[in-house]
Design a binder for these strands. Structure first.
Length: 427
RNA sequence: GUGGCCGUAGCUCACCGGGUAGAGCACCGGAUUGUGACUCCGGAGGUAGCGGGUUCAAGACCCGUCGGCCACCCCA
């Protein structure tokens, strides 16, 4: 093996996998279009400060996971670790926020982490963001959109919705103080990671996986008790609407999300089928971010889904059907026959733009060409040899089980080939 | 950043201190003249991740290193 290998955590998506990817991408694009969302494409690289000021300076992402570098002018740039910051920046800078906007984007994100199942350094997200609508019906729409997509992909049974409200900044700060106060009195019962979080990001302690810590939290102050009326009614309206449509969810009071910009609604679609990586899709409301990044006070909600994780889920369910490499495989013996075959094949491609018609290349005996025809999965082989050239015909061989009474091989005049193929596919 | 498991043919894996390192699948060729699959026959393909050590002898044991997977952490 050469030492010129791919960078750790940056995977090639191989030909055997791209059908699954395309399947997911098409389904997503379809569903998004049906809800009226428009695509936006942003650069992969942004100024480092953009991420520092949006994601939150003390988050792991900004502290140790960003691919940052100085460009030739000495300005610090960063390969985007997530999409929301760039999308907000673009929306502000390009003046998209005069009226409500429904946007989506897809593409690679970069985070310097140890790779594991469902997690790599270059990974792909599809992000959906809504700007300008402060009411909970907007949050609802986004969640319904997800639900529709899971149905569409056939993975609805594998994911479930976790929901919470983390209120506005003042109530979160008040709660944070109460939580820290409570935990500081019980420092000895806290695990090491949680102790570290006590100064940096106390809310994250809530979703610690440590059992002792979780037990400790049962008696801790509850975030829900600190929400103001606005956040409370926003959340209950969201729940009402979800109930009305019949989307089931679990209110998870410990769900706080990692990025600083969220307020009010946060949600996560989780699965137990991807090892340690439970979150397939996650997001929430971020009413303050546009203002914080230099725009007007425009409310917003959004979420992102992890393509790799969706594809993994889909593959576990085996619901992507594979297509044969070719529908028709063209073989020939002799250079004159190959010439005839080439011309006829080109005409067939015009007549049947949706079929995959492969003409054998690279020579070899007719036998070896026929082997290739079989392996390609094609239903028909078209054969040109000396005899066919001599009488302007082509031999059509049916390679698969087909309609009763169908001959295994027939010889037709070249000018009747199109008609023959058409009738084969009609039946 | 920490921990566990693992690097032998294109792929999945055997052999687990001793002869020229094997199998299945895949690949190539042949089994009648111009015809696939199934079957049979034949062939090609490996400095056993890399470096060092122990030993009369190492793919197997030890150390290091690189790479992979999984988990912690974090997150989509």
């Amino acid at each position: 093996m050469s030492e010129l290998t791919a960078i750790r955590g940056m995977n090639d998506i191989l030909p055997s996998e791209t059908p699954s990817w395309q399947y997911v991408e098409r389904a997503v694009e379809n569903v998004l279009a049906s809800y009226g969302y428009a695509e936006i494409r942003m650069p992969l690289v942004e100024k480092t400060a953009l991420f520092q000021r949006s994601i939150g300076a003390v988050t792991d992402i900004v502290e140790k996971e960003m691919y940052s570098f100085d460009d030739r002018n000495g300005d610090s740039m960063t390969l985007r670790p997530e999409g929301t910051a760039g999308c907000v920046r673009a929306a502000i800078q390009r003046g998209l926020l005069g009226s409500p906007q429904r946007l989506w984007y897809a593409g690679p994100m970069f985070r310097y982490e140890r790779p594991q199942k469902g997690r790599q350094r270059q990974f792909h997200q599809i992000g959906v963001e809504s700007f300008g609508v402060p009411t909970p019906d907007m949050d609802t729409e986004l969640i319904l959109l997800c639900d529709r997509l899971w149905q569409r992909l056939g993975i609805a049974d594998s994911v479930s919705l976790q929901l919470n409200s983390i209120g506005n900044l003042p109530s979160r700060e008040a709660y944070r103080d109460a939580l820290v106060c409570y935990l500081e009195k019980r420092l000895d019962q806290l695990d090491e990671d949680s102790r570290r979080r006590l100064d940096s990001n106390p809310l994250r302690i809530l979703d610690s996986k440590n059992k002792a810590t979780q037990a400790l939290l049962c008696e801790a102050p509850r975030l829900a008790d600190y929400l103001d009326d606005d956040a409370r009614s926003h959340f209950s309206r969201l729940c009402d609407l979800l109930d009305a449509v019949g989307v089931s969810y679990t209110v998870n009071e410990r769900l706080v999300r990692g990025l600083d910009y969220y307020n009010k609604t946060v949600f996560e679609w989780v699965t137990d089928q991807l090892g340690a990586q439970g979150a397939v899709c996650a997001g929430g409301r971020y009413d303050g971010l546009v203002l914080q990044l230099g725009g007007k006070a425009v409310p917003a909600v959004g979420f992102a889904m992890g393509m790799e994780r969706l594809v993994l889920l889909l593959q576990e369910h085996g619901s992507v059907q594979e297509r044969p490499e070719a529908d028709i495989y063209v073989v020939s013996a002799g250079s004159e026959a190959q010439r005839e075959a080439l011309v006829a094949t080109q005409a067939l491609r015009v007549a049947f733009p949706d079929l995959c018609i492969q003409q054998h290349v690279g020579g070899g005996s007719l036998k070896s060409q026929m082997k290739k025809a079989d392996k390609s999965g094609a239903s028909l082989a078209l054969i040109w040899g000396e005899d066919e050239v001599a009488d302007n015909s082509v031999s059509v061989k049916f390679l698969r089980e087909n309609a009763v009474g169908q001959a295994r091989q027939i010889n037709v005049a070249t000018n009747r080939l199109e008609k023959t193929v058409r009738s084969f596919y009609a039946s």
